[in-house]
Design a protein around this nucleic acid. Structure first.
Length: 196
DNA sequence: AGGACGATTAACT
DNA sequence: GTTAATCGTCCTG
């Protein structure tokens, strides 16, 4: 809502993403997703909704089938972007969590996006595919190291961050995923009030 | 080699 | 509430 959300803040270090996936998913709403483009352009938006996908035992997680060409990135370093293609037309952005060798990630499902430098609110990107579309992210971003010093896509701590109110609920769109995974409250959303 | 299905979305009835 | 769009991935054979 204010221009301050655009001010560059501290980038989240790899140690942040190395935490337990539920912790990362719970802490990400309210943080800033930043996408640098050609010519020094900067798109930034407040992360609004996340979802956790944790390990081979989580039957909703792509890693349920073990390590494959597609899921190999989930076994990589925390802070790595996992971008995959689905439904023949949509790209999804995840950030890999926990230690290398353990497949887990947080899906970014919604963003409050702002134009730079005017800070004009964009149409709400209230869906994981809309989010990647708005930031022009596709498979070429898969395996992007979001914690590298020269990263073009990364997460920042906002400068004036009030403790956000988080609401959790079951994950969305899991289809025929069996219980208990279908009902686990691993979706995390900003509440009606973001603090202040 | 073939088929079912998907961490979705927009456009319908 | 229902359905088409559209293709990579995974499972079966």
């Amino acid at each position: 809502m204010n221009a301050f959300v655009l001010e560059p803040g501290a980038r989240l270090p790899r140690s942040f993403f190395a935490q337990p996936t539920l912790t990362v998913a719970r802490l990400l709403p309210g943080k800033l997703l930043v996408r640098l483009g050609a010519g020094g352009s900067r798109q930034a938006g407040v992360i609004v909704e996340t979802e956790a996908y944790i390990g081979e035992s989580d039957l909703a997680c792509h890693a349920r089938s073990g390590r494959t060409r597609r899921t190999a990135v989930m076994y990589g370093a925390p802070g790595t972007a996992y971008v995959y293609f689905t439904y023949g037309m949509h790209w999804m952005l995840n950030i890999v969590t926990e230690h290398s060798g353990f497949p887990a990630a947080v899906l970014l499902r919604a963003l409050h996006l702002y134009d730079s430098p005017a800070a004009q609110p964009q149409p709400a990107t209230n869906g994981p595919a809309k989010l990647t579309r708005a930031l022009q992210l596709d498979g070429t971003w898969n395996t992007h190291d979001m914690c590298a010093p020269d990263a073009q896509l990364f997460v920042e701590q906002p400068q004036q961050a009030a403790p956000p109110r988080i609401v959790c609920k079951p994950r969305v769109g899991l289809g025929k995923t069996p219980q208990p995974w279908l009902g686990l409250p691993w979706n995390f959303c900003l509440g009606a009030h973001t603090g202040s």
